[in-house]
Amino acid sequence: MENVRRVISVLVENESSVLSRISGLFAGRGYNIETLTVAPVPNSNLSHITIVTKGSARVLEQITKQLHKLVPVYKVIEHDEMVEKEMVLVKFPIEESLADIEALCAAYNGGIVNVGVNICIGMVADEPCRVRHFLEATQRYNPIEIVRGGVVAIER
């Protein structure tokens, strides 16, 4: 069976061990995690977890069902129709052209967010595939360090 990429949103009760329950489920059952992000939902005792995974149709169905079985899990949203965004920070040497970097980041909904003595930091938030293109494009400016934030998604 062919592996497909899938974004899954999980609404969970905000208790201390919930993240280990979820990551443990993925590790124990051999499911793949590409990215995982967590943050509390404002004004509630819930957290929103976004997981990007890959698997066959059978595995993806199992992932959803197994997540549902966890007691602190309220809701599992698995949708083709998700608006996805990912943030990435890239550190460049100050010797590179700041104007070029600024223009590149701007092309991907971002900009330069910090400039120091030796480095500057660009930030971009965009769809995951556009982030990939952005990172390819940064290569000619000799990036020193890249930190990706993982995907967050919301139903359309």
Binding site: S16, S17, S20, R21, G24, G28, V71
Partner: peptide, 16 residues
């Protein structure tokens, strides 16, 4: 205990 038993219990609690 909660960490070790997570994969072999239906659910578990550490009372805080």
């Amino acid at each position: 205990a909660v960490g070790i038993s997570r994969p072999c219990t239906k659910h578990n609690y550490l009372v805080r």
